[in-house]
């Protein structure tokens, strides 16, 4: 098989994931896009491993590691996102603007802060 196929597929998949990471507003969607990027890398690793016939199977071993790390990452990432959602009432990345150097966002933050208590109560109602 031509090596270009998996390589190009991986490259394109990576760029699709990149677009998703950069363009998606919802944090969970961002995490999904990150998974896409990781998978692109995995595909590359597997393809090159198969191509090189590595005696140590380093490509596939690394892929396994990557998958494991990705699982850990998604677990932690979702925990963080849920925490943000619980505190701010939103999972939108561009509204989590505490790093902002500006006042126009501060209002939004305050609003989010005031929504925090409401969100908490609602969450408790569900839980």
């Amino acid at each position: 098989m031509h090596l270009v196929f998996p390589a190009v597929l991986a490259a394109l998949l990576f760029c699709v994931g990149l677009y998703g990471v950069l363009a998606r507003r919802n944090a969970v969607l961002m995490l999904m896009s990150v998974e896409l990027m990781l998978n692109a890398v995995n595909l590359n690793l597997v393809a090159f491993d198969v191509w090189l016939r590595d005696a140590l199977h380093s490509g596939q071993a690394l892929t396994l590691f990557t998958i494991t790390v990705a699982a850990a990452e998604i677990g932690l990432g979702l925990a963080i996102v849920l925490l943000i959602f619980r505190n701010r009432g939103t999972a939108d990345i561009d509204r989590v603007g505490r790093l902002t150097d500006g006042d126009e966002k501060a209002d939004g933050d305050e609003k989010a802060d005031s929504a925090e208590t409401v969100g908490d109560d609602e969450m408790e109602g569900v839980g």
Binding site: A11, L12, F14, C15, V16, L18, Y19, V21, L22, A23, R24, R25, N26, L29, D92, I93, D94
Partner: peptide, 18 residues
Amino acid sequence: DADSGNRWLALGVALAAA
């Protein structure tokens, strides 16, 4: 509002990277 405001920038970057 699933996509944020910098989707065109992201598209440009992604296309360039691709």
